[in-house]
Design a protein around this nucleic acid. Structure first.
Length: 485
DNA sequence: ATTGCCGGGAA
DNA sequence: TTCCCGGCAAT
């Protein structure tokens, strides 16, 4: 039983813990360092789940890259493309033959498989991918079509499942280390929701690093690029959220066309409209129609705007997050999950209920803040600083460990915690204290053992995941000093 | 099964 | 002293 303790903690970090020193107060204290390390390295280790963030970012980056490359390829006449949604979307426009090809081929991919793959050999190329093609240099439509065809073929060929992960993660980490954000912004926006927000970036992105949502969430969009693939993804997401009626959302899907031009988030309801927009605004062609080589197709994507999704997502969140003031930050997670990038990871990553765990984790943290605010005792301050809480939050809810646990049992635990926290601040000093008094006097419990106070102790409040937040007494299995009775 | 923490021991 | 944990009672 006792040895269990040790095991318990690893739980928080899960596999991560392996190879690390036993979980002790010290070990936990190293969190900060680890976190920092992760941020740079993109590792997945993390007791608190901070790492997850990085990993997710990694995915994100991958995706970005893939898409960016696409651009690059096109402009340079290169080939090769992956199942990047953007590509398919583009094809939606005029190049029906191509689309057909894609459709026919795409099924080859398993549902759980990544939507695209990054062949490792090309990793170096990634850096150049950020270059946006200059439209004016493009060739006439005839050639373009051929290119597309070739690209399509190659794409399918390169989509072999065997290729991906290693290179992907590697590149992602690499990016993370550097100013990947820059790269991202420079690169083309992919068709996924997440990307859009990033491209528009910096201007409207709230306080959270969580790329995906913030931006689009504000616009009430939850989109997914269509194609069966994506639909599946969407549904899987629902599954994760325990949505009882996954199919439901299809009903309220509206097809829109979004301009993919960098920093342009124009969304129009008609393809012709968006084409015109691109032609005139971005390609610098005047007049409406005359000269159209179909190039515009490459600069917009067809998206499905789901009116339900947003509300659904919110409804999912609200019930479980009593203390959460702003669900918005959480949202971004959904789009990210559905994007192809997330799939490029190994199966286990795919299954990781990011979405599921994310919310709970978030609450967790928030509640912590609440605690700090009301708690007389000053908390170590490492993991949760009220002022920058936002940052923390975004980071931590992506933590893998937490997520993992969420699947099985811990989920409930976490919720319990949040509830407790919510309540705690109020009665902690007053009510609970008096309570304790009355109860203690009433209790005949003699002797040695204390009755056991009513107040929740550090362990329960923070949970094993955040043991570093516990008071020392609790860490040492002594009577809690912070939440006394 | 989990939580709180006493008692005791190692460093 | 500081830190950890076995183990037990309470929940």
């Amino acid at each position: 039983m006792s040895s269990k303790r040790l095991l318990e903690q690893p739980r928080a970090g899960d596999s991560t813990r392996e190879g690390c020193e036993p979980v002790t107060g010290k070990a936990l204290k190293t969190n900060a360092l680890l976190e920092a390390a992760l941020t740079n390295s993109g590792k997945e280790i993390s007791p608190n789940g901070h790492y997850y963030t990085s990993s997710r970012e990694r995915h994100y980056i991958h995706k970005k890259f893939a898409c960016g490359r696409e651009e690059d390829e096109q402009s340079s006449g290169g080939v090769l493309k992956h199942g990047c949604p953007a590509h398919r979307l583009i094809l939606n426009g005029f190049r029906l033959q191509d689309q057909t090809h894609m459709e026919a081929l795409s099924p080859v991919r398993g549902p759980g498989e990544p939507g695209y793959h990054l062949p490792s050999p090309e990793t170096p190329h990634l850096h150049t991918s950020s270059i946006i093609p200059v439209p004016h240099d493009r060739r006439p439509s005839g050639l373009a079509d051929k290119e597309v065809m070739a690209a399509t073929v190659l794409t399918t060929l390169s989509t072999s499942p065997l290729v991906l992960n290693p290179s992907c993660s590697a590149s992602g980490a690499e990016l993370a280390g550097k100013g990947w954000k820059e790269s991202l912004s420079a690169s083309y926006s992919s068709s996924t929701s997440g990307n859009w927000s990033w491209d528009a970036s910096d201007q409207s992105v709230p306080s959270t690093p969580s790329p995906p949502l913030s931006n689009d969430a504000g616009k009430s969009f939850l989109l997914s690029s269509q194609s069966d693939d994506n639909i599946e993804e969407t549904e899987s997401t629902h599954f994760l959220f325990e949505d009882p009626i996954p199919r439901k959302r299809k009903n309220s899907m509206k097809v829109m066309f979004k301009c993919l031009w960098k920093n342009c988030e124009k969304v129009l309801s008609t393809s012709s409209g968006i084409q015109r927009h691109i032609r005139t605004v971005h390609l610098g062609r005047n007049g409406d129609s005359d000269y159209s080589d179909g190039e515009e197709d490459f600069y917009y994507s067809e998206i499905e705007v789901n009116m339900d999704t947003l509300s659904e997502g919110l409804s999912n969140l609200t019930p479980t997050s009593p203390t959460t003031s702003g669900p918005a930050p959480v949202f971004p997670v959904f789009p990210v999950l559905t994007c192809d990038a997330s799939r490029s990871e190994p199966a286990r990553m795919i299954h990781t209920p990011l979405s599921q765990s994310a919310p709970s984790a978030l609450y967790h943290i928030r509640t912590d803040h609440a605690y700090q605010a009301t708690t007389p005792v000053s908390i170590p301050s490492m993991p949760s600083d009220p002022p920058h809480s936002e940052d923390r939050i975004s980071v931590s809810w992506q933590s893998p460990p937490v997520i993992y646990k969420a699947l099985s049992g811990p989920m409930t635990q976490i919720r319990t915690v949040s509830i407790g926290e919510k309540r705690q601040p109020v009665n902690h000093t007053t009510v609970s204290k008096t309570h304790a008094n009355t109860t203690s006097t009433a209790k005949p419990t003699t002797g040695t053992r204390k009755p056991r106070g009513e107040a929740k102790k550090c362990r329960k409040v923070y949970g094993m995941e955040k043991r570093d937040l516990w008071c020392t007494a609790c860490r040492w299995k002594k009577a809690c000093q912070r939440f006394t009775d």
